[in-house]
């Protein structure tokens, strides 16, 4: 096994893990506090990517586009909360799932109407396009490091917000006991809308970060949302720490599985059998991990204490 390939794949795994965390943190935040299942969270990720793509062409600057697209995705999240999520808070999860499933169809088709059926490639500025040579064989694209940095930064900011600010205190209190918080005179409606918009911005940021690599495309959110579900199931729904650890774990396992599982299998089976079975097993790997975790701990690795 090639050592520099191992490092590159590990970095790819961390990158995927951090993007997953950005999507999953919004999901787990919204579920933990609002008790609301938002299937359409992936569509906010997609909208983030598309808005950022359009703005990049408008401003001619990717960084400026991200800075403007972030609040715009927040506003979109705010609108979704007001018109779709709020009427469904008191319903059972089934209604929430179906309502937001309808919202996915609507948002995907809107993206199709506005941006057309093909994906949009997002150009990067020159200083982000280069590569950094760590050694002769180890070359890492600069933008991948930027994604990792931005992901870690957003995660740190989120933990600071939740654990060390007044808003975070309200969020945590809301997650423990919604009724009590509103009885103490806190405007729970506004708090909910803020949480929702925050989740939308985080998912949107993940979409903006991945867009220059994969391009913004319709349905991109529908792939990542399932993996984000796996992340929050494994981490424990409602737990921010669980989402972070599970996201990195799932990101690493998925990436490493796809690149190295055939080598691993060759240790104890014929190379033909290894090459045939490895792709199938690596495609299922994260779900197998999820099943294992759930059979041992049905509430996930870090179940929130209250609930």
């Amino acid at each position: 096994m090639d050592f520099s390939l191992l490092i590159i794949q590990a970095l790819n795994g961390v990158q995927l893990g951090l993007l997953l965390f950005l999507v999953a943190s919004g999901l787990t935040l919204v579920f933990g506090i609002l008790d609301f299942v938002n299937l359409a969270h992936g569509s906010l990720y997609m909208m983030g990517a598309f808005i950022c793509a359009s703005l990049t062409f408008l401003f001619g600057s990717f960084v400026l586009a991200v800075l403007v697209a972030l609040p715009l995705t927040g506003v979109l999240g705010f609108l979704v909360e007001r018109f779709v999520a709020r009427p469904l808070y008191d319903r059972d999860h089934l209604d929430q799932v179906l309502g937001t499933f309808g919202l996915i169809l609507v948002l995907d088709t809107l993206a199709h109407l506005i941006w057309g059926p093909a994906g949009i490639a997002v150009p990067l500025p020159g200083w982000l396009q280069g590569q950094i040579a760590m050694s002769e064989t180890l070359v890492i694209p600069t933008f991948r490091l930027v994604i990792i940095g931005a992901g870690l930064g957003a995660a740190a900011g989120l933990f600071w917000l939740v654990n060390h600010t007044r808003l975070g205190m309200l969020i945590r209190a809301g997650a423990s006991n919604r009724t009590m918080v509103s009885a103490l005179g806190i405007d729970i409606q506004t708090l909910f809308a803020l949480v929702f918009a925050l989740g939308a911005m985080l998912a949107g940021l993940a979409g903006m970060l991945i867009a220059p690599i994969t391009e913004a495309s319709i349905g991109m959110g529908n792939n990542i949302i399932i993996t984000a579900f796996v992340v929050i199931i494994v981490g424990g729904i409602g737990s921010m720490k669980g989402a972070f650890i599970a996201a990195l774990m799932i990101g690493l396992i998925d990436t490493m599985g796809r690149s190295f599982l055939d080598d691993l299998f060759k240790l104890f089976m014929s190379s033909d059998a290894a090459e045939n079975s490895a792709p199938a097993v690596s495609a299922m790997l994260i779900y197998i991990i999820m099943a294992l975790v759930l059979s041992l701990r049905p509430q996930g690795l870090f179940p929130p204490r209250t609930r």
């Binding site: 089934l94 779900y287 999820m290 099943a291």
Partner: peptide, 28 residues
């Protein structure tokens, strides 16, 4: 496995297992 969980966990885990089969077939 799914029935050991309840509520929203059940919704998501049934969905995830279905997606597992989806990716399995895609990989063959």
């Amino acid at each position: 496995i799914c029935l050991r969980t309840k509520g929203v966990y059940f919704i998501m885990i049934t969905m995830a297992f279905a997606q597992m089969i989806y990716y399995l077939i895609v990989s063959i």
